[in-house]
């Protein structure tokens, strides 16, 4: 059995060069109508545009070949993002991205597989696939755009909605507790988890780059502004209001470590956490196939006299 060490920050400080990412951005989109397809469908000021930009900057820094990248998405405002990227895309059922991405990676381990998911997609309807992909430590990167609400359906509360805040279906204030995505991922077996916000654009690029470079299951939670559906109900009607809110209420993991726990309450702790390496599933499977095909191992016949040596 392995024990997971306390999370530690491993941030790197490298400047991000601005550069047009034509290699990775597909402006036409996957829409039936040419006229409709010529613009991005995000709301004006939506943080998804900044997040998309950070994703392609991270790809550029790694030098990914778009032919060998697959994004997997489901339902939500972010779901159109895959069609604005030149990589291949699976745009399938709501919440199923981690299950599908696991199979894609197992079928072709040479692919870079990145899921694009919302907080509802990844943490509510798709939570079981998320934790099991983390448990398997399959080498995929999960990017979760956390805007606290179901945006595409009009702003209902979700599994990450902060307690007491107003949404379309928590008109008296949210009474449920919210998920901590980073801790959930680390607890389920992820080797890399990061939290960032759309205000911290350069940190976001580094967090995504680190996640894709990490061999094994990795997660990046991007706190994203939905001023239209969440901000308006909570005193921040403009995009800039919410960006300023993220700026003023975020602390780095290094800063948080020096603060008293009660001072961290109500703050967004941004940073990168890693856990000790565990076997990665697609690689382990390939090793197993090689051993079986070489005749080195026989299937268990049911009865054995040897107790297992747990690893």
């Amino acid at each position: 059995m392995t024990t997971v060490e306390a999370p530690r920050a491993t941030e790197r400080r490298q400047p991000v060069k601005p550069k047009p990412m034509q290699e990775y951005i597909e402006v036409f989109g996957n829409l039936p109508d040419e006229k409709q397809g010529r613009h991005f469908r995000y709301c004006p000021g939506c943080g998804l545009g900044i997040a998309q930009s950070a994703i392609v900057r991270a790809w550029d820094r790694i030098g990914l070949d778009p032919e060998k990248v697959v994004t997997v998405g489901g339902s939500g405002c972010y779901a159109v993002m895959g069609s604005y990227l030149t990589a291949s895309q699976a745009h399938m059922g709501h919440g199923r991205a981690c299950a599908m991405a696991t199979a894609i990676k197992m079928s072709d381990p040479e692919l870079t597989v990145i899921t694009l998911q919302g907080d509802g997609d990844g943490m509510a309807i798709g939570a079981q696939h998320f934790v099991h992909a983390a448990r398997r430590n399959i080498d995929i990167t999960v990017v979760i755009f956390n805007n606290f609400v179901y945006g595409e359906t009009g702003g209902q509360h979700g599994p990450t909605t902060p307690r007491t805040t107003m949404t379309q279906t928590s008109p008296y204030g949210m009474v449920e507790n919210e998920f901590d995505i980073v801790n959930m991922a680390l607890g389920a077996g992820a080797g890399y988890a990061a939290r960032t916000t759309v205000f911290h654009a350069q940190h976001m690029v580094r967090a995504i780059e680190g996640a894709i470079r990490h061999k094994g299951f990795s997660v990046v939670e991007i706190l994203q502004n939905c001023h239209e559906l969440w901000g308006k109900r909570n005193g921040m009607p403009k995009a800039t209001d919410m960006l300023a809110w993220y700026r003023d209420n975020s602390v780095t993991s290094a800063q948080a470590a020096k603060l008293e726990p009660e001072d961290v309450l109500g703050k967004f702790v941004i940073g990168t956490w890693t856990a000790p390496d565990r076997p990665e599933m697609s690689e382990e499977w390939q090793k197993l196939v090689a051993r079986v095909q070489a005749g080195e191992v026989e299937p268990s016949k049911g009865a054995s006299s040897k107790p297992p040596a747990l690893q």
Binding site: V70, V72, A90, M92, G93, R96, A99, M100, A101, T102, A103, I104, M106, S107, D108, L111, Q128, H129, H132, W285
Partner: peptide, 21 residues
């Protein structure tokens, strides 16, 4: 590949992911 999924919903989606690959 033999993949035992967390439920049947995951299974059918994994099948689609593999087929797409």
């Amino acid at each position: 590949v033999y993949l035992q999924m967390e439920d049947e919903v995951g299974s059918i989606n994994a099948v689609m992911g593999a087929s797409l690959t």
